[in-house]
Design a protein around this nucleic acid. Structure first.
Lengths: 113, 113
DNA sequence: TCCGGTACTCAGTGACACCGAGTACCACTA
DNA sequence: TAGTGGTACTCGGTGTCACTGAGTACCGGA
């Protein structure tokens, strides 16, 4: 990431990171470590395992995902996550909210009257 | 927007609301009550005075604004806020972060490989 | 005189990303 | 065989933010 302007996105990621994780899981069943790597690839360079696991635990606690434990070829067993119906509904809600907020903010940015 | 989907934007507004307030103040010197009305007009319907005042107090505490108290024609005196240099820098940083996050999220949304 | 609109303050709450230390499994190698 | 590094997850604690709610206060009109 180009250093300087875009360090510490913490506050801006509140709410959105969970949505991103939901979206990633929605694409295909996957696990925490891989999700972290995926987020890093996408440009969320500073997101670390600990952060993703807290989100995953919360999704599980809130009944939005179906969890399956499977052995890994290398390392400890993996917990695979897939969206259930509640999770898909939550994901749809997230995108609706995101679009809503994004359009308002951009309107304000473009001199919004 | 259809009601229902976009209620409780609280988490998504973390960080962005402060940026919006900064932007509004940057346009012209104004005061808390008016800023709240402006945000409501812009589509942030659920934002109330209390929320805006906490942001304003924080901006003041962090030395990002210059504050001038002036009597009002109707009601108690108003505290007018204007950006100082630090505030303008913070605003620029906010937009840089916002653009950065927005492009990453949208890329993910559009199937982002 | 009371109500409603204007205008600000402040202590407290809950949610979230983040941190750090810990556990543990595996493959490779010196 | 001990050590290192990559993989993989857990959990207690922290700080920041939007939000809540109760309070103070000024003003005009019914």
């Amino acid at each position: 990431m180009e250093k300087g302007a875009v360090e510490d996105l913490t506050e801006l990621l509140k709410g959105t990171l969970e949505g991103c994780v939901l979206e990633i899981i929605g694409r295909e069943e996957t696990y925490g470590y891989a999700i972290t790597r995926r987020l890093n690839e996408l440009g969320f360079a500073d997101v670390v395992e600990g952060t993703v696991y807290t989100i995953l635990l919360r999704l599980e606690r809130n009944g939005l995902v179906q969890v399956t434990k499977r052995p890994s070829e290398q390392g400890p067993p993996r917990k695979f996550y897939a969206l259930n119906d509640a999770g898909r509904a939550e994901l749809a809600t997230f995108w609706a909210k995101w679009t809503y907020v994004k359009t308002r903010i951009d309107k304000l940015k473009e001199g919004g009257r």
